[in-house]
Amino acid sequence: MAESSGKIDPMHQFAIEPLFGTDQLSLGGFNIAFTNSALYMVAAGVVLWIFVIGGMKRELVPGRWQMAVEYMTGFIKSLLIANVGEGGKKYIPYVFSLFMFILLANLLGLLPLGLIGLHPFTFTSHFTATGVLAILSFSIVLAVGFWKHGLHFFSLFVPYGTPLPMIPVIFPIELVSFLVRPFSLGLRLFVAMTAGHVLLKVLAGFVINSSNAGVGYGLTIGSASFILMIGISALEVLVAVIQAYVFALLTSVYLNDAENLH
């Protein structure tokens, strides 16, 4: 984190580094090096896998772990039923995967592994990663919409009760707002995670640099920044959950458009 000059670069945490000498690994001409980002994706997948295995005991009277897993699936189910209706149940596997994967990515990235010399990494702070998920959700919305309603799906861009002369104006506006969805979906998560992490690192830099500048600075600026960091760390945990929820919620709202038009 601290560079040789003694300056602290708050952006270094987002740097992607190939691991295990795989930097030349390629597929069809594209570099697919196994990076620290990929490592955290695998970690999120494995942790989620272990978490859900604990819910597979299928006991009538659940233990704590099974209860936790069933609570999460029940939460996604009620989210989809509230937003899409009974037809939303078939999206439980997708929205559950999306929500839990993002949630674990956000939370694993917040683990204080830097204390033991590791490089904690939050791949949801990269729009190349969040973009894939956003485009995936948007593609599912498009596929479901056109498969269920055919060209009638375009009536989504003409809200019910629009006066006829207004349609030429409303249609492009609605179309653009619809097409912006994957960008807003992916960028929201990326920006929220990036901003929080940068803020934490900047404050950590204040603590270190003010302490280096002298005891007086350290006790005033340093401790104030440290106290602020504690609060912001708690806020970051909340943001990690909220952003995963927002991603899942917006996906289900968009799925509602595709499933029920209006």
Partner: peptide
């Protein structure tokens, strides 16, 4: 990194 990110994602 985009190819690696998309692939592993």
């Amino acid at each position: 990194t985009y190819a690696s990110q998309i692939f592993w994602m």
